[in-house]
């Protein structure tokens, strides 16, 4: 049961993809400014730590645990990265990881990379880390409180990222929000539990084994009771709003938005409608479909054979 959050190219409309690229670029820009200004709390050179921890997140995503035969729990690692490096640096690391996954492993597309970074990096890591901090502070700010906060936030981050992914797919017309949203949220509510358990266990392990490393980062902060209460109320309110939004999800309303965007889409691709009823001359609709299909297959096979030879001769030379 891998989280289905790495959208491939082709599943989002170009408009949505570009919009999310812009949003992502702005927020990552802020993160870059924030990190270059942060006093370096961990070791002398933060870029080195960030780079190595990027590789760590990558590798940590390989660790799984069996849930039942055939399904296993995995880690996405956004909130974990945010806890270990701070929200802004953690976001940059996750964005880098997601980018490298797309470039090197074709896990997620390139034009939709902005969307994938937005969902897992901005929502999942930046948002998740602030929620984690808020909950941690509200619970008293001790080490175990912040770790608990990270666990709750890890669950929320996965669920929220799944929600945003589905919304974007729906607005692109590739999925039905009324059906897709509950399904994705349901599945990721389960996946999120694995994320939360692994995050809490990993942070507990680090806190026990190497408290010195955690001492500098995500330092437990003492907040006044009033402030704690305020933060708690704000978070509870936010979660409740999000939950009710997803729960009632006013699918008709969302569907309407999608349709409108669909019209927009049609409007933008108006030039594509020049020959809407194009058929092969002399054949009726069905026959021309069949003929076109056959022709297509013949071309494909021919090309495969010819280019296969070309490739072999190229490799030899």
């Amino acid at each position: 049961m891998y989280p289905q959050l790495h959208i491939p190219d082709g599943f989002l409309s170009p408009q949505i993809s570009l919009l999310l690229w812009v949003a992502t670029a702005v927020l990552i820009g802020i993160a870059v400014r924030k990190t270059s200004r942060t006093d370096v709390r961990l070791i002398a050179s933060q870029p080195i730590l960030m780079g190595v921890l990027g590789a760590f997140i990558f590798a940590a995503q390989m660790f799984n645990f069996p849930v039942a035969t055939g399904t296993s729990g995995h880690l996405l690692g956004g909130v974990l990265a945010g806890y270990l490096l701070g929200p802004w640096a953690g976001t940059i690391v996750m964005a880098t990881v997601i980018g490298i996954q797309a470039l090197l492993f074709q896990d997620g597309g390139l034009l939709v990379l902005g969307a994938n970074i937005f969902n897992m990096g901005i929502i999942g890591t930046l948002g998740g880390s602030f929620v984690a901090r808020g909950i941690g502070t509200a619970l008293g700010g001790s080490r175990s409180a912040t770790i608990l906060g990270a666990g709750v936030a890890a669950w929320l981050a996965v669920v929220a990222a799944a929600g945003f992914t589905t919304l974007q797919l729906g607005l692109s017309g590739t999925t039905n929000i009324a059906v897709g949203l509950p399904a994705m949220l349901g599945v990721h509510a389960l996946i999120g539990i694995g994320e939360a358990l692994i995050t809490v266990a990993a942070l507990t392990f680090i806190a026990q084994t190497a408290p010195d490393i955690l001492a500098g980062v995500s330092a437990p902060r003492k907040a006044s009771p009033v402030r704690r209460l305020a933060i708690g109320v704000v978070i509870a309110g936010g979660v409740a709003t999000l939950a009710s939004f997803f729960a009632s999800a006013d699918p008709d309303g969302l569907e309407a938005v999608a349709e409108e965007l669909g019209f927009l889409d049609a409007g933008l691709s108006a030039p594509f409608e020049l020959f809407p009823d194009y058929t092969i001359p002399g054949l009726d609709g069905t026959a021309s479909t069949v003929v076109a299909g056959l022709l297509g297959m013949i071309v494909v096979i021919g090309v495969l054979l010819a280019l296969g030879r070309l490739a072999r001769s190229r490799t030899k030379s």
């Binding site: 070791i43 002398a44 050179s45 080195i48 730590l49 780079g51 190595v52 921890l53 590789a55 760590f56 590798a59 940590a60 660790f63 799984n64 645990f65 069996p66 729990g73 880690l75 974990l80 270990l84 694995g194 358990l197 692994i198 995050t199 809490v200 266990a201 990993a202 942070l203 507990t204 392990f205 680090i206 084994t209 190497a210 490393i213």
Partner: peptide, 25 residues
Amino acid sequence: WRARTTGNLVGSLFLRAYSRAQRIE
């Protein structure tokens, strides 16, 4: 318990990565 074990693996790997970062530094 299995999730905790996996978390332990993640934590161990983090400490290994962290000390590697220190050595590179």
